[in-house]
Design a protein around this nucleic acid. Structure first.
Lengths: 145, 145
DNA sequence: AAATACCTGACTATTTTACTTGGTTACTAG
DNA sequence: CTAGTAACCAAGTAAAATAGTCAGGTATTT
């Protein structure tokens, strides 16, 4: 599977955008500084986020990026999949021919795990994560729902 | 995160062991052929599985590997963590200093996701996966519990 | 004694990730 | 209108991890 720095960066950057959600565009340079992510790498990620219509861009001075959708309507799965991280653990990637044309012993298992992760990430939107941060950042243990 | 071929191979090999669970040891050569995994790679994985006391080995002719524990008592998390795949998505890996000494916006989120995955994989044991395979392999869709 | 099969360590190829470089294009504030 | 800003783009690279190989062992059994 892929669920690594790339996806984390994308989510982090989107969180930054969402929490500085003024009417004014946010530059990648600001995000780069605030979140400690290389500018050029951000550019690559935002090219993909833009193609996925999650953000819109404004060029020129005073320009930058804005969310294209309300933070409540952007799930984490959307962000992660937008930057190419496919949440699929199966060896065969769905073709069901993992082992000599047959479905392997653990095929169904990896489907379930992938579904679980995808399901969880789909159940969370940007706004929730931000709200969570401000209400729970000092609470040490929180039970998983 | 790490949740890739290495962990899959380990689980697959353990499933093979568990389903051919006779009193006779199973050689890595057999697993290699049946599951289409390189022998030397299996040797590396089984060295780790043995250190984690999940399997025991018998040397010499007629030797091979046996499960060290009942398949009902081996969770998938145990197997995956035994081969070094740590299910931890956090940039800081727990130190909570993701961003300039502070906990980043998404810290709590990645904790939750990691917990979800670990929780799910811990809830499944080897025997369940095998049983699932034989009862569900033709059923196209199965609702996630 | 010989065959079997585990065991070990080092080494290599491949892939992916994360990041860099060096530009071009669009826009706007002055 | 022009200078500077910031998005956009393409290619290349460094580092790391993964997946696998190779060449030797060592222990056990037949």
């Amino acid at each position: 599977m892929q669920l690594t720095t790339k996806g984390r960066y994308a989510v982090t950057a989107m969180l930054d955008l969402a929490s500085n959600d003024s009417s004014r565009p946010v530059t990648l340079d600001m995000i780069s500084q605030r979140q400690n992510i290389s500018l050029s790498y951000l550019e690559q990620l935002f090219a993909k986020l833009r193609k996925a219509s999650l953000v819109k861009s404004i060029r020129g001075p005073g320009g930058g990026y804005l969310l294209n959708v309300n933070p409540v309507d952007i799930t984490l799965t959307e962000i992660i999949e937008a930057v190419d991280e496919n949440i699929d653990l199966r060896r065969c990637h769905g073709s069901k021919n993992c082992l000599r044309g047959k479905q392997c012993l653990s095929h169904h298992l990896w489907c379930e795990v992938s579904d679980q992760i995808r399901g969880f990430l789909s159940s969370r939107n940007l706004q929730q994560v931000i709200d969570d941060y401000y209400t729970n950042q000092d609470i040490k243990v929180k039970l998983t729902v």
